[in-house]
Design a protein around this nucleic acid. Structure first.
Lengths: 212, 212
DNA sequence: ATTACTAGGCAGCGAGTAA
DNA sequence: TTTACTCGCTGCCTAGTAA
């Protein structure tokens, strides 16, 4: 029943009346003409479609209720494939050496984070020692929002990328420098002071949901 | 069968093995445990899913083939709802009074078109007298890409918006000024000289597919 | 040509139950 | 507990055919 409705939608039944015979529909769906006819009647009974007869040939249009059903279905598929684009990393809270804080104090980076992530980052990073470090490789290979490097007087600040993420439903972002020696530690930034907001401290194991 | 596969995907079966009993699955799908069990076997036979037994409880993962099927389905729904966001306008080619050409010569507008539409517009507009003028109202109510107004010396140039569109598969865009007296005429811009590229001239009736 | 009825066969469903 | 077999039964599908 849903497959018939979907086929009618593909034929344009959401935009207005479509002229399609039961036989044509049957071929598209690999069922008999009789079955197609019956399914059309079923859809009419369920108020999923509306039908007129335009000189022997039927005209079909999907109703509001039919549209709702299709939207629900579409939403399911969106959820499925959105979820696919996420990766979950488990890690242990660690103390860094203050470099994170330093980088966030540099305007050239801070402004980009603000613009590209949509929040003004707290002046410090949360360091996580990742328990399955191979997963960091997935992040390195994926395109995130690009953070452009720049020159500031004598110092050079390198390129990087960042990925929106969540820890226990709190929005944050994972930063991946473009050039870096191997490390199993990632840096997380957020609008809030995460240690306080999440009530976590060194040694705690937490999970980060990263959106690729 | 597809509904079962979809449910398994919603449970995370695309990311790895999921632990779900046939009874649980049955409840989610409003079928009997026996039917769920049978459908799982069917999916295994069709190489849609893979199964392990983890101490009495089964672990299920969707295979490449299963993923393909879901992607195909998802693509169908995307097509359906993308198509919904289009509107088709029929109109007659008309000669304007050169204003279009003037506006395109103004850098403040031209640069925005270039950036927001992704093409460098030909120096002139195609005027279409729309046969169902009420459809223009739909465009006026929709959000398109915004074109910012500006001051240039003594003149004020107003805000507007534009919508990507196609005429006979040639990319173009429809421009809608923010403030304008009622008119049944729309202006179309394109990278090409449309009259030549499409072989059309005054009085010809054509159709524009506008993407909302 | 169309839509859609009836009839008959077969698939799929769920209850009972084994392992 | 779990999975999954057998077995009736319901209902869906198609063929034939009417309108």
């Amino acid at each position: 029943m849903l497959d018939v409705l979907k086929q009618l939608a593909l034929l344009g039944g959401l935009k207005g009346f479509v002229s399609v015979s039961s036989g044509e529909l049957a071929k598209m769906l690999n069922i008999s003409q009789q079955s197609a006819s019956k399914k059309i009647l079923e859809l009419i009974n369920n108020n999923m479609i509306e039908r007129n007869f335009g000189h022997k040939r039927q005209l079909i249009k999907i109703t509001k209720k039919g549209l709702n059903l299709l939207q629900k279905e579409y939403a399911d598929y969106q959820r499925i494939f959105e979820e696919m684009k996420k990766i979950s990393l488990k890690g242990v809270v660690t103390s860094g050496m203050g470099e994170g804080k330093y980088y966030l104090s540099v305007r050239g980076y801070r402004e980009q984070f603000k613009r590209k992530l949509g929040f003004n980052p707290y002046n410090g990073t949360l360091n996580l020692k990742i328990l399955e470090p191979n997963k960091i490789g997935i992040l390195k290979e994926s395109d995130g929002a690009k953070i452009d490097g720049f020159q500031d007087g004598e110092r050079t600040f390198g390129n990087g990328k960042c990925f929106p993420a969540k820890i226990k439903n709190v929005d944050c972002a994972v930063i991946i420098p473009e050039r870096s020696h191997y490390s199993d530690i990632i840096e997380v930034i957020s609008a809030d002071y995460l240690r306080e907001k999440l009530g976590i401290s060194d040694g705690d194991e937490i999970e980060v949901e990263v959106k690729l």
